[in-house]
Design a protein around this nucleic acid. Structure first.
Lengths: 195, 195
DNA sequence: GAGTGGTCTAGACCACGGA
DNA sequence: CCGTGGTCTAGACCACTCG
């Protein structure tokens, strides 16, 4: 594409305005910009969907449902290899919506990054919620898969062959891993996104 | 939070600079801004994950896998109610990666919006790909769920109890529905996102 | 009505990185 | 090297909307 200065002249606007417009297009992935190389229309416009990740409690309460949770297990130990950290707190909890099982949480927290969590009464506040307020993170990743209910079936009172959505989330603060959590949702749950 | 003019004075920068910074924070959801009401820190900072939705062919080829597809069914008919349109083209196709089943596609296309699709040889180019190039859309939504393989098991040569990821995508051009597609992926597939 | 954010201008300097 | 986008400034007008 023409450079910013030319576009500004062509449309009779200031260069800053062109810059803002092009930046917006770049943010949505329709064009790619590199210094000196110029601005190019993206070959395969990869559509980006945005999905909101609310704190479980807030997400439920927005829908008018009451959230509670039960801590099923809590123990110190070595995190699995793919967590990227060693000494960890392993938590297993069940989230309930209006008293009905909503999500099963299996979490590893990096004790090197967040030692204070040992002092917290996690039967009162869910790890999810405490971490949001006390352990900031800069970035993370998310992978959404499907699994058979198998041994989780009793929690959801479903057949062990039921297909459940499982979301794995890992977060970092700069280079330091914070936590890895697997959330397995009740049958029928869907992750929503807009694009 | 203080208003833009005050922040500019406090930090000794131009108001435009403050505006750009705050806009960036607002885009990531950390603050909320309303005219006259001012700028407020978001109570429940909903994290937003961004997931890339490539054209199936492009996504696979980026990974060095060869894409092909087989059209399993094609017929005109009335779209299901929740599509939001009537006369439709119903397509069923199987996407293959290196000759192995990768995704099962069940699609309804709004013939009122995209009548030209009737002239296209969809055994040559997948509907997915053709629509990307010929039927622009302004927005859409996405829901990701899990289902048993059930009658799809033969396509993926898996047990009918296998849990599969299913993605439903609907797209609109302004107010006009374009297409609704259900993509069911091979066992083990995960949808990736960054946050 | 008035205060807020939204947007634009004209000009400037700079960092990056491709040719 | 030097053209490109990235960023900032100082000032201005406007649109929205809450009190």
């Amino acid at each position: 594409m023409p450079n910013e200065a030319d576009l500004a002249r062509e449309f009779g606007v200031a260069r800053a305005t062109v810059n803002r417009a092009l930046r917006s297009l770049a943010d949505t992935g329709l064009i790619e910009r590199r210094r000196r190389a110029g601005t190019h229309v993206t070959m395969n416009p990869v559509r980006r969907a945005v999905l909101s990740i609310p704190v479980i409690r807030a997400g439920l309460e927005d829908e008018g449902r009451r959230h509670s949770h039960r801590l099923l297990a809590k123990e110190e130990g070595e995190a699995p290899d793919d967590c990227g950290f060693g000494p960890a707190l392993h938590l297993v909890a069940l989230h309930l919506a209006d008293g009905i099982a909503y999500a099963y949480e299996d979490r590893w927290v990096n004790l090197h990054a967040v030692p204070q969590i040992m002092q917290v009464d996690l039967t009162q506040i869910s790890a999810n919620e405490w971490l949001v307020g006390n352990a900031p993170f800069t970035h993370g990743d998310l992978s959404i898969g499907a699994r058979r209910a198998a041994d989780l079936a009793p929690h959801f009172t479903c057949s062990s062959d039921t297909a459940l959505v499982q979301v794995r989330r890992r977060t970092w603060n700069a280079e330091e891993p914070i936590t890895r959590v697997d959330l397995t949702f009740a049958p029928g749950h869907e992750v929503q996104a807009k694009l």
